Amino acid sequence: MNNNSNIKVSSLGKTWIFDIDGTIVKHNGYKIDGEDSLLEGAREFIDKIPENDMIIFITSRTEDMKDETEKFLKINRIKFDYIIYNAPFGERILINDRKPSGLRTSIALNTERDVFLSTNFEIDENL
């Protein structure tokens, strides 16, 4: 699926899972520039996620980056429910079942590094 598409989703509550580096912040910006920097559009997108949805960040950053990472997210008003640290550098694989109605309950998108997602999610009441 490309980075500039429209995706129809149900009106049910959702779980959003984001990588951190290269997805919502500049990849390794904290190492290269001495601090993280949000990618253009990241805050605006996350702000549009309904309060009742869950936001999980997953990162290869180690636990010793926890305080610095969470402080940055809070200062920049990036809401989240959980952060999983120490994830392997390889693929992230999401496996979920399909509802009896046919609703596909998993969506996976790959974005260009350091370019925030430009996909639009549209609620379809028929799903």
Rank of each mutant, 00 (worst) to 15 (best):
T59A: 02
R77E: 08
P50E: 14
D47P: 08
E63T: 14
N86W: 15
T59S: 08
E63F: 14
D67P: 06
F57Q: 15
D53M: 15
E70V: 06
T62P: 00
M54T: 15
E70D: 07
I46C: 01
I83M: 00
A87R: 05
L73I: 00
K74N: 11
I56R: 09
D47N: 10
N86A: 08
D64K: 11
P88D: 10
T69D: 08
D64I: 02
M65P: 04
I75E: 14
F72R: 14
T69E: 06
F45T: 04
E63H: 13
L73W: 03
D53C: 15
E70Y: 04
P88F: 03
F45K: 01
D64M: 05
Y85V: 10
E51M: 09
D81N: 14
F80Q: 01
Y85E: 08
Y85C: 06
K48D: 09
I58D: 08
K79Q: 03
R61K: 09
E63I: 15
K74P: 02
E51P: 09
R61S: 05
M54N: 10
F80G: 00
R77L: 03
K48H: 07
R61A: 03
I84S: 08
N86R: 05
I84G: 05
K74H: 04
K66D: 13
N76E: 10
R77N: 10
R77I: 03
R77H: 10
D67C: 03
F80H: 00
L73N: 01
S60F: 09
E51F: 09
T59K: 04
I46M: 02
D53E: 15
D67G: 04
I58L: 13
R61P: 11
K71S: 09
E63C: 12
R61Q: 10
F80C: 01
E51Q: 12
I83D: 00
I78S: 03
I83C: 00
I84W: 13
D53F: 13
E68S: 11
D81E: 06
K48S: 12
I75N: 13
I56E: 15
I46P: 02
K71W: 02
E51R: 12
Y82F: 04
E70I: 08
M65E: 06
I75G: 03
R61Y: 11
E51G: 09
I55S: 07
M65G: 02
E68T: 14
K66M: 15
K74E: 11
F72S: 13
N76Q: 08
I83G: 00
K71Y: 05
K66G: 12
N76T: 02
P50D: 14
D64A: 04
E68F: 13
K71N: 10
D53K: 14
E44T: 10
R77V: 03
R61I: 09
E68K: 09
F57R: 14
